[in-house]
Design a protein around this nucleic acid. Structure first.
Lengths: 344, 344
DNA sequence: ACAAGAAAGTTAAACGTTTTTATCGTGCAT
DNA sequence: ATGCACGATAAAAACGTTTAACTTTCTTGT
């Protein structure tokens, strides 16, 4: 048996395929009674719209391209970027729409740039979702110039507004720093993402500003930039803890680097809560299983991801980007007092 | 400017669109010289094949559906299933082909079953990749019945052979158990995935067999099945360590549950290497950052994932499934002696 | 020299939709 | 009655590609 098409329904009902097509998409041009007949026949024969026909005819792809920057195949390191959860969140947000998520895995920034140019110029998707935005991001410019719908996970400083979702890094660092200062910390280390990433810059700015407010001086030796792997967290604890004036608190930008920081503590014989403390940002609620559990700023990854999906839908429907911008404040989860206690 | 089509090239070269089409796909029906002319014109005008036309005409979708079973949007727990790396590995394997990865996020087994039925009957993809196979998996039956190309990440016990990639769980447990027994362990706990998953069964069988070989008796209290979250690892250490005859070794099926096991150690005041040890399977090399680092069986996730991509391509080209079956043996990485040492 | 067959192109149809344009009644005002 | 607008449906073209069937020209064996 062949798969039924609108032609099948046309024959079945004695109507023309044009009427059938219009009836199925609720065109006001067809009478309710006629529509009812069409719908009945459609369900009876088990009709399902063939997207290939639609795509060819309309030029729409009904694909949302998700650009995922994952390190090359040889690198199997945990970066704590929960792309899987991000992707599934997006996918679920599109569930009741005709759109599908189409995956574009790239190895680095340059590749993502090339891929995006291709998607835009060859119209391989109707919308794009990117993450890991830079402050001044050429990919954003590409898409804006072509008036192509997109949403970013992460902010940027572009003049023209664009749709984005991000954690409120500024507020997070401000709150985090104030809390640590209040608990007596004077030397606070910042383990930051790569310095060209937009949120890295935001965090650094907020960090510097918080130091100023607290009357503390900025020491570049307490700030590190890098890929947020466990190795990164570990290395930095190893070096920073050897400083003449070692930090008593480490703010880690994700759970992977926090885990690595613990590894550094273990190596140096440092005890969490006696010699120093670790705070982190956490998407996965995994920090509660550290030994000991640490204080985190927790933003369930499902929130930004479903927003990304919702926003790209609305953007593709022509909604202006200004209305599609959200900063989410993570919840502070205090699992530690975070005051140093010499008796531990 | 309109996007160039084969019609553009036909006008440009004075040939018919049929010849152009054939030339571009290296049909033997067109002379090399003619093909050269076509190719030249194509590159000159910047021609790119429009997939929608192809898809409509041929019925092929050029999509590979990756079914990803992720817990619902409300659950943000780390399961250590590195779908992101799995997906990017697959995506890269398809890079030089016309195929794209299309993502289907589902919440549970039933949903994945429904989605697969739909993909198969409505031909929404040309091939499917699934993971989390059950020993007797109805999804596999669906696809086999329809003669639909697919590859599984995980084995099954179906009569008809199918393409799969998996870690060699049997060998891994055998080696692992022998090693622990040799180091003096007599009470070994197995933290296993959900009991309907194929690899859970394989591991359990191998575990029982290893006990038998070592002359040890099987104690159901030392085996747990569940979603491999940190919570699962933690809970089981908490309960098992209270047994009259507590285990001295825990074999964790992934790094997330191993992390949770550490959390249980911390809670109970157990010291790794003195009271008990933890061994794990690890895709991400993250166990080296545990405190202390533990012994793992490490299979870089990039290996199975690129195999999955390569296999689905070959399967879609009609290669018989028998030729596309691989069990990968993870590397044993000894980071601990794993003998109990009371003086620690 | 000639039929047969291969080689290289062309023509035309088809895939399933959407959408513009045309057709045909019907009701209504004039 | 005539003309007109309107509402509902039909006809036809178009999107870009592949491919079966056909045509033309050139080889080749007898």
């Amino acid at each position: 048996m062949q798969r039924p098409t609108i032609k099948t329904i046309a024959q079945e009902t004695g109507l023309s395929i044009a009427t059938v097509s219009k009836a199925l998409k609720h065109s006001p041009q067809v009478r309710p009674e006629t529509r009812a007949i069409v719908i009945e026949a459609a369900t009876r024969v088990g009709y399902e719209l063939n997207m290939h026909g639609v795509q060819l005819r309309t030029g729409k792809t009904y694909q949302v391209a998700a650009i995922m920057t994952a390190p090359g195949p040889k690198q199997n390191e945990w970066e704590g970027v929960e792309y899987a959860q991000l992707l599934s969140g997006i996918s679920w947000a599109l569930e009741d729409s005709p759109y599908r998520v189409s995956l574009y895995a790239v190895r680095n920034f340059e590749e993502s740039q090339a891929v995006i140019k291709q998607i835009v110029s060859l119209k391989k998707a109707d919308g794009i979702i990117i993450s890991g935005t830079r402050a001044d991001d050429p990919r954003i410019r590409t898409m804006q110039a072509a008036d192509f719908p997109f949403v970013t996970y992460g902010t940027s400083i572009h003049n023209a507004p664009h749709a984005y979702v991000d954690a409120d890094n500024e507020q997070m660092i401000r709150v985090s720093m104030a809390r640590l200062v209040e608990r007596g910390h004077r030397r606070i280390a910042l383990l930051n993402p790569l310095s060209d990433l937009s949120y890295g810059i935001t965090r650094l700015e907020a960090y510097k500003h918080a130091l100023e407010v607290a009357g503390l001086s900025f020491d570049p030796a307490l700030v590190a930039h890098g890929r947020l792997t466990p190795a990164f967290g570990r290395e930095n604890v190893l070096t920073m803890s050897e400083l003449a004036n070692a930090p008593t608190a480490y703010i880690c930008a994700n759970e992977a680097s926090a885990l690595g920081a613990f590894s550094g503590f273990h190596e140096r014989g440092l005890v969490h809560g006696r010699d120093a403390v670790i705070n982190a940002t956490d998407d996965l609620n995994v920090s509660q299983y550290f030994a000991p559990p640490i204080t985190t700023y927790y933003l369930p990854i499902s929130e930004p991801s479903s927003l990304l999906g919702a926003y790209i839908l609305r953007r593709m429907e022509g909604e202006p980007p200004e209305a599609l911008q959200t900063l989410l404040m993570p919840d502070l989860i205090e699992r530690c007092d975070d005051r140093l206690n010499p008796n531990r």
